[in-house]
Nucleic acid binder design. Sequence first.
RNA 1: CGGGGGAUAGUGUAAUGGUAACACGCCUGGUUCGGGUCCAGGAGAUUUCGGGUUCGAGUCCCGAUCCCCCGACCA
Length: 411
Amino acid sequence: MFQSKLFYKAKKEFPKDEESINAKYLIRAGFIEKLSSGVYEFLPLGFRVLEKITDLVRKEMLSLNAQELLLPALHPKENWLATQRWEKFDALFKLKSRTGSEYALGPTHEEIIFPLVKEMISSYKDLPLALFQIQTKFRDELRAKAGLLRGREFLMKDLYSFHKTNEEVEKFKEKVDRAYLRIFKVLGLKVYKTFASGGTFSKYSTEFQVPTEFGEDEILICSNCKVAWNKEIKSDRICNFCKEILTDHKAIEVGNTFNLGDSFSKSFDLKFKDKDGKEKYVFAGCYGLGISRLMGAIVEVFHDDRGIIWPEKVAPFTFHILILKKKVNLSEVESIVKIIEKLKKDYLLDERNISFGQKLVESDLIGIPYRLVLSERLKNMIEFKERKSEKVKLLKISELFKFLKEKLKIK
RNA sequence: CGGGGGAUAGUGUAAUGGUAACACGCCUGGUUCGGGUCCAGGAGAUUUCGGGUUCGAGUCCCGAUCCCCCGACCA
């Protein structure tokens, strides 16, 4: 990608109407723009980050043998009446068609997927079943805030699993928990598995919380066991496992896993015929992961006063090539591009005719993990620098492939 | 929805009640180049919207809308 053609503009100042770190940095660096409160536009840079997070999450969901599908965002009122959540779910966006039909804009999809699954399963042989989607959700928040951390429209991965017994749900839920932890590990995010109540979903749940300044949940962390409790439900301040004293933190919930039991199956009369010939209710779980919220949380955690510092796997590009030369040597650029393509990585090439200082400043602002600089000062050497470090390394073009391959741990 | 703050050019700001200014960005030409170069010229605004007071309103008054923060609620 040529930076001169990229649909973006870095701003010289932070936006005046945003306070949260994620919104300030993402807007200033040209990843997102605000349309209205809690509703953001994802520009090419921001969209690439969403896509990379999506890829990472999708890979883990497929590894659980979950199948991907896409459900509507426009939900008939009847589905929500069936669970009594038309009235109970406060943040439900409701709308009326010209002919008077009423709809909800989907904030979650139990009301849609349970009737759908009912069409397909009838026997114990059809279970277990796991389905997921990555889709835009809508919640009528009383107050949207903190940029991408609490929007009225946001991107979310939602997974639903269906089982013969409650024990199977619990087992599957643990597998999902581990998949989530693998995702956060790849991102380098410290995420705490947090015990909490279940809200309108179920009696209890597991939340995945990232400690950040702009987080709105309060959690109690056990530094020894690396787990946490939501402050709302924990009456004491002692770890249930090791008796350590817990410490207070503000945190943002990026994911959760719920055991739904058979409650939704009862609402929609979702049953299967078991081996013994008896009809039984299906046990289910649901598992959410906020994709756009995760993007915001990453910026909250990974930034410095010069800009964003993206984790490699979700950066908009892996390499940022800066040409700090008056006369560009095209063959030199081409050979670097070939090396990156050979490594199967993407790059942003800053070939703009602007001052070198501006290129360097904007490069730090955007926060692409690996920077390659071509400069007359370096003669025929290439400068390599990681965004997260101050160290630079000079390399000959002939050494570049091997060096990057080892650096990025590519097999 | 309660409390607080705010809305002026694409962005950030300025303007004792006297007819909108500056910086950045943008366009033209030149110049410079390792941390948002410098010079010259140019374009760009019914000052969020609607009323009112006044000879005269960005400024004062009333109403609305939108945005931010705190709270209540919440992936």
